[in-house]
Amino acid sequence: MSSFLRDLSLSAATAGFVAVLVGFTSSVAIVFSAATALGATPAQTASWMWALGLGMGLCSALPSLWLKKPVMVAWSTPGAAVLATAAASGGFTMEQAVGAFVLCALLITLAGATGAFERVMDRIPMPIASALLAGVLARFGLDAFVALRSDFGLVLTMLLVYLVGRRAWPRYAVPVVLAAGTLFATLQGRLQLQGVSLALTVPQWVTPEFTLGAAVSLALPLFVVTMASQNLPGVAAIRAAGYTMPISRIITLTGAATLLLAPFGAFALNLSAITAAICMGREAHEDPARRYTAAVSCGAIYVVIGLFGAAVAGVLTAFPRELVVAIAGLALLGSIGGGLAAALKDEHHREAALITFLVTLSGLSLWGIGSAFWGVVAGTLALIVQGVRRP
Rank of each mutant, 00 (worst) to 15 (best):
G90N: 10
S64T: 10
A240T: 15
S76M: 08
R290Y: 10
L259P: 02
L361D: 01
A353K: 08
I305S: 12
I251E: 04
M280E: 11
G255A: 08
V164G: 03
G370D: 01
S130Y: 03
A97I: 09
V376T: 05
T252R: 03
V206I: 14
T41L: 06
V388L: 14
F17L: 15
V388Y: 10
E351R: 15
R239D: 03
A343Y: 02
I274V: 15
M72E: 11
L323H: 08
A34I: 04
S297R: 10
G16C: 06
I278K: 05
A378W: 03
Y292E: 09
F267W: 14
S248W: 00
T258K: 09
W50I: 09
F140S: 00
A80W: 03
I274N: 03
W48S: 05
L218C: 05
S229F: 00
L178D: 06
P233Q: 00
S26L: 07
Y162W: 14
G309I: 06
L200Q: 07
G309N: 11
S89L: 13
L163N: 01
L160T: 07
L52H: 05
I124M: 00
S365G: 08
W169N: 05
L259V: 09
F210C: 07
A228G: 02
T182D: 04
E209C: 12
K68Y: 08
A276L: 11
A147D: 07
T14M: 15
V164D: 06
R239M: 01
A13Q: 05
T211Q: 02
W367C: 15
L333G: 05
K345C: 06
H348Y: 11
S89I: 10
R171M: 06
T211L: 11
R282K: 14
A88G: 14
A311M: 11
I274T: 14
Q44M: 09
S76R: 14
L110D: 08
S362R: 01
A378H: 12
R119Q: 12
G368H: 04
L269G: 09
A138W: 01
L200T: 10
A328R: 02
A277P: 00
R282N: 14
C59I: 01
S365W: 01
L156A: 14
A262I: 08
M56H: 10
V202C: 03
A105V: 04
L261C: 06
L358C: 12
I238D: 00
M72R: 03
T77M: 14
I355T: 13
I301P: 10
L330V: 06
F24Q: 06
I124S: 02
R166D: 07
L333S: 13
I274H: 07
R6L: 13
P127F: 02
